[in-house]
Nucleic acid binder design. Structure first.
Lengths: 230, 230
DNA sequence: CGCGAGATGTGATATTATTCACATCTCCGG
DNA sequence: CCGGAGATGTGAATAATATCACATCTCGCG
């Protein structure tokens, strides 16, 4: 729980801080604190009041809404993403739970510092508007796919979305660098683990995807997956 | 297509302009234009570039994504809501279609004026952040309900959401002042019109809701509906 | 004031996905 | 290098929902 001291350049690749002047970034360094969480740590707990927002420096964070036996996964967020800002904006309690998937290096900022920056750094407010707008677009696309596609289509769409978001190209296709279990995918598309297994298995047989090291999916034929959606 | 001239006070109840000084509101009046659309007018067309945003003064606007025979309804927006701002923010093309349900009085503002205001009126940027944050929350709640609830539960949740958003209390219960056909509800919850009919009919029989003038639903027993969701 | 388009009501059947019940696999920690 | 928890693979039974095919209703408009 130390502040990050003198690395204003490390803030540049973060969407929320994109384009900020050195002076602003230097000031932010005094307001941001570092904390490393182990794997499976609960960073934000549903229904609790929210006093801080986090920015992911490394690792991935799972955002989910817990239910009776069924957890709905709202997002898997990676480096550069901001987490938990909504409770700071509208003062409502946490609408979901956030937990680390692996060890994660996070930056955090408290409510008053966050508001202070938003009010005094117009560009940061504009960046936040862009980030939220993008999230609304993504959420709408997801609502549409849940309303119109069958399970296979929804899984295909989710994989393509991750590939587009985080995918790293290779000579074999696009690798999705996220720990993705079939249960996670089921939580993401709103279905049962078995149904997801059926989709994944059939695509594996057709060599359209493959799975390495148990979790990491590579898409070989994204056109074939795209045909399953819209 | 006239500008709205001298009614800066009419901007106060609009969330985007809440709390703005008289000077700012007066300036906005020179940038905002009035236009009245007839019923069923297409205000925004999917996949087209977006050059303006609209603010609803009266009437309701349906936001939907058109598909082969299945249209997904993303939202029904009423007075005070802003429509089409996302394309102005991120310069992407329209992600959905917006059409009036009845005759609607709308205000519109073009891209450059919108950006200009956001950059020069910090409070307006903050208001927009709040509006977008709320939309992300609502979208996430919807994703969760589509992932975990059966059809009856999703319809119940949608009706309660509308009641909470737009409902007007009466001695009989809460009236939802929106033209809501069963096809619309099906588009909102991602199901078939017939399934929605089954839910509505059974609730009507149990006197938990009633329908007046063909479209307007009154909720008599919101607790009973709430039990169908979470 | 009557007609017609759009909206609603309702079953029978077809399809899709869940649930349940296992067997098997594989990585990680002791 | 072994044991076990968590992850995957698979089929059969069951449940939920879509689809289809109508009949009926009702408001708005000519």
């Amino acid at each position: 729980m130390m502040n990050i001291e003198n690395q204003p350049d490390s803030l540049l690749p973060i969407a929320l801080f994109a384009g900020l002047s050195l002076a602003h970034r230097t000031r932010l360094c005094t307001l941001l604190h570092r904390k490393t969480f182990p794997a499976k740590a609960v960073v934000i707990l549903e229904d609790h009041p929210g006093e801080v927002a986090y920015i992911i420096q490394s690792g991935t964070v799972k955002i989910s809404v817990l239910g009776d036996e069924i957890d709905t996964i709202l997002a898997l967020l990676g480096p550069g993403e901001i987490v938990g800002e909504m409770s700071l904006i509208d003062c409502m309690s946490r609408s979901a739970t956030a937990e680390t998937q692996e060890e994660c290096k996070l930056l955090w900022i408290d409510r008053s510092a966050f508001h202070d920056c938003l009010e005094t750094i117009p560009l940061m407010a504009m960046n936040l508007v862009g980030i939220l707008s993008r999230r609304v677009r993504l959420a709408n696309a997801r609502i549409q796919s849940m309303a119109t596609l069958d399970i296979d289509g929804r899984v295909a769409r989710q994989l393509l979305a991750f590939a587009h978001e985080y995918g790293v190209p290779s000579n074999e296709g696009v690798i999705i660098p996220l720990r993705l279990t079939q249960s996670d995918l089921a939580g993401l598309v709103g279905s049962s683990r078995e149904s997801v297994n059926h989709a994944i298995s059939s695509w594996k047989q057709k060599k359209q995807i493959s799975v390495d090291g148990r979790y990491y999916i590579t898409i070989h034929d994204s056109a074939a997956l795209a045909k399953r959606c819209g």
